[in-house]
Design a protein around this nucleic acid. Structure first.
Lengths: 344, 344
DNA sequence: CTGAAAGCGCTTACAG
DNA sequence: CTGAAAGCGCTTACAG
C-alpha cells in the first residue's frame, strides 16, 4: 500500500494525497475528506523513509551510550527521549557495551577508537541529524568524535576541547553544597574520602570543598583527606583510618555511595554509630544508598535533566548550526537528598 | 556527496559504484581499486535510507520499552543489542516512560492502549521489520499489539494469547531451585513471603515451591506462607509474623530482594542473626542485594539472555515468517547466586 | 484547487 | 565486465 494506490482509490493525484497527509491548506475540505476516508479504510501509513529521502530530513538522532547497564544511563536516555519526543525526533540507539566488550579500562585503546569511528559512520549513513554521546562515567572525552558533519553533544562527560558541547552535572557545586550542609549542621571537622584523586570528578569536588572551607574560615586539615578508588573496599579502608585518628572528624564526605557503604562497615566494626558518633554523606544516590543502615544522605545527580538538556542543545544546533555566543559546557545542579546519616 | 558524484569522479557508472559498494564479484579488481580510491578520498558513505527504499529492507527493528529506568530493562536491551549487531540489524528505541507518564497502574487504561498504538504506528511507518516489546514487570500482555504486519516478540512478559511469542525467565523453575537448595542445606521448615499472591509470578513460584516439597516429601505448613506486595515494608511485616511463630521456619524465601531486605530489618529487630538463626533467600539479584548485611543469596535473572533470545526469535521470524512447529513461549533458566544469607 | 512530472540516492534487471 | 534506464515511495515547484 503506497501513495499511488491511495491516489488511485481516492481518484485524485498523488500530490493531493501528499497534501492531505501533510495538512497542506491547499486542498478543499471535500477532497480531503475523500482522501482521509480511503486512508482510514486501508490503514495506510506513509513511509517515513521515502519521505526522508525526498525532504532530506530524517528527524532522527543517534544516541551512542558507552554502556547502558551503568546506573546513570537509563535515566539520561529517559530525559533525551522526553525532549526528542516532544520535538518529533526519533532515536537510533547504539549501545557500545564497553564493559562487556573491553573491560574496565577501554579509554584510548585503538580498539575503542575504531569502535567509535565505526559506530559514528553507521549512524551517519543512516542520516542521523545529530549525535549524543553518553559516557559511562564522567571523564574527559575531548575529540572522541571528530570530523563530522552533524552536531555532537557529549552527555555525562567533560570535554576540554573547547569546541565540543557537553552537559554534565556540577561536581564542584555539589561538593560545596555537601560541605555547606555539614557546616550548617554544626560540623567543623570534616573528613573527605575522594575517588581516584587524579580524576576530574575528584579534583572538581575538592575545589567545592575548598571553597566552602574558605568561605566559612574553616581549618584545612590534610589528615582528614583520604584518597579512595571509588570501590567500597577503599571506603572501608579509608573510613578506618579516619575514624581511628586521635582527633577524628565528626563528619565524612565520601565521594560516592559505594565508598560510603565501606565507611558504614568500618564504623560498625569500630562500634561507632552513624550519625550519632559520626555523620556521613555519599554521592550519586545509587539505589543501594536508600537501603543502607542508616539510610544514606547523599547527592542526587540530575540525570534526567542532563538528558533533556543534551537533546535540547543538540536539536537547537541542528536547527541553527552556526549559532555563536552560546554556552558550550553545561554543568547542571545536583540536589542534596537528606536521609538519616547526618547528625544536626 | 552521492553515488552519482562518485561515479563521475571515478569515471564509471553509478551501477559500477553500487557494485563495488556491495562487493559484487562482477567488477574487475582494477575498476574496483579506482572506485575505492575515490570513495576513500571523498569519505563517501552511501545513504542507508535510499538503499532501504530501493531494496525494501531496513535492517531495523523497533524496541518498545515500557520503562527503561526499571532495573531489568537495560540488561535486556544489552542482550538485544548484542544479537542484532551480530546480524547487522539496528535498533530504534521507543521508551514509553510509563512510570513517569502514567504512574504505577497503567495497564489497560485507554491512555495506555492509545500510546501503544501510536508508538507501533510510528515504528511501522519507519519500516521496522519487527518489534520487541519489553515489559517493565512480568505480566500478561496478550494482545497488547494487534493487527500488525511484522513479527512481534514480548520480552520479560507473559502472553497467554497462544499466538504471540514471548520470552521470559522461568519463575517456577527458579522457585524450585531455591527450595531444593534450602533443603539441600538441611532446612525442612521453609517460610515463603510471596509478592501479590494473584500475580502470575507469585503463582508460578508457588508451583515450583510445591513441586520441591512434593519431591522431597516435606510437610506443607500453611502458617509458613505469607503474602507480601513486593515492597520492603511488607517483607518486614511478614518477616515479623514468620519469625514470631512459636515454631518459626529456619529459612525464608522472599520473592524479591526488597522484601528480603524487610526480613533482614525484622530479624535485626528481634535479635535474630542471619544466617545463624534463620536463613534467607531473595529474588532478582538487585544491585542492593549485594550490599545487604549479610550479603543476600538470591536468584539472578537471565536478563541478557532474554534480550538475546528475543532478538534471535524475532530475526528468525523476519527471515521465515511462516515457520510452524516452533516454541512460542520461552522460559529461560535463572541462576542461584550464593552469598552469605543461607546457613548450611 | 488539482495534476503531471521531476527528483531524492540508491539497486538491479537488461542490453551491449 | 560496464552502462543506461527504470523504479522504490514520497514531495514540490510548476502549469493549468
Amino acid at each position: 500500500m503506497n501513495i499511488k494506490e491511495i491516489s488511485r482509490l481516492a481518484e485524485v493525484s498523488t500530490a493531493t494525497v501528499s497534501n492531505v497527509l501533510n495538512n497542506s491548506p491547499k486542498v478543499t475540505p471535500k477532497t480531503r475528506e475523500k482522501v482521509l476516508r480511503v486512508i482510514n479504510e486501508t490503514q495506510y501509513r506513509p513511509s517515513t523513509i521515502a519521505k526522508s529521502l525526498k525532504v532530506k530530513r530524517t528527524n532522527t538522532i543517534g544516541v551512542i551510550s558507552e554502556d547502558i547497564t551503568v546506573f546513570n544511563t537509563p535515566e539520561i536516555i529517559n530525559g533525551i527521549d522526553e525532549y526528542t519526543e516532544s520535538r518529533g525526533y526519533h532515536i537510533i540507539l547504539n549501545n557500545l557495551r564497553l564493559h562487556k566488550r573491553l573491560g574496565n579500562h577501554y579509554t584510548d585503546t585503538a580498539k575503542y577508537h575504531k569502535l567509535i569511528k565505526e559506530t559514528v559512520q553507521l549512524l551517519l549513513s543512516r542520516q542521523v541529524e545529530g549525535i549524543i554521546y553518553i559516557g559511562a562515567h564522567s571523564r574527559d572525552v575531548a575529540g572522541v568524535i571528530q570530523n563530522i558533519s552533524v552536531p555532537v553533544v557529549y552527555s555525562y562527560c567533560y570535554s576540554t576541547g573547547g569546541l565540543d558541547f557537553s552537559v554534565n552535572y556540577d561536581d564542584e557545586g555539589a561538593a560545596y553544597q555537601v560541605i555547606r550542609y555539614l557546616i550548617g549542621s554544626g560540623h567543623r571537622k570534616i573528613g573527605v574520602i575522594s575517588g581516584l584523586y587524579d580524576s576530574l570528578q575528584s579534583q572538581n569536588r575538592f575545589k567545592g570543598y575548598q571553597r566552602a572551607l574558605l568561605e566559612y574560615n574553616l581549618f584545612f586539615n590534610p589528615a582528614y583527606i583520604k584518597a579512595g578508588d571509588w570501590e567500597r573496599e577503599s571506603g572501608y579502608l579509608m573510613g578506618n583510618e579516619l575514624l581511628r585518628l586521635p582527633d577524628p572528624p565528626t563528619a565524612i564526605f565520601a565521594m560516592n555511595d559505594l565508598m560510603a557503604g565501606g565507611v558504614i562497615d568500618a564504623a560498625k566494626e569500630l562500634g561507632k554509630s552513624i550519625p550519632r558518633d559520626v555523620s556521613l554523606i555519599g554521592f550519586d544516590n545509587r539505589e543501594c544508598s536508600k537501603y543502607f543502615t542508616p539510610q544514606l544522605t547523599t547527592i542526587g545527580l540530575p540525570l534526567n535533566e542532563i538528558g533533556k538538556k543534551s537533546a535540547e542543545i543538540l536539536i537547537s544546533r541542528i536547527a541553527n548550526p552556526h549559532e555563536e555566543n552560546c554556552i558550550r559546557n553545561y554543568r547542571l545542579k545536583c540536589n542534596l537528598i537528606e536521609r538519616q546519616s547526618v547528625r544536626h
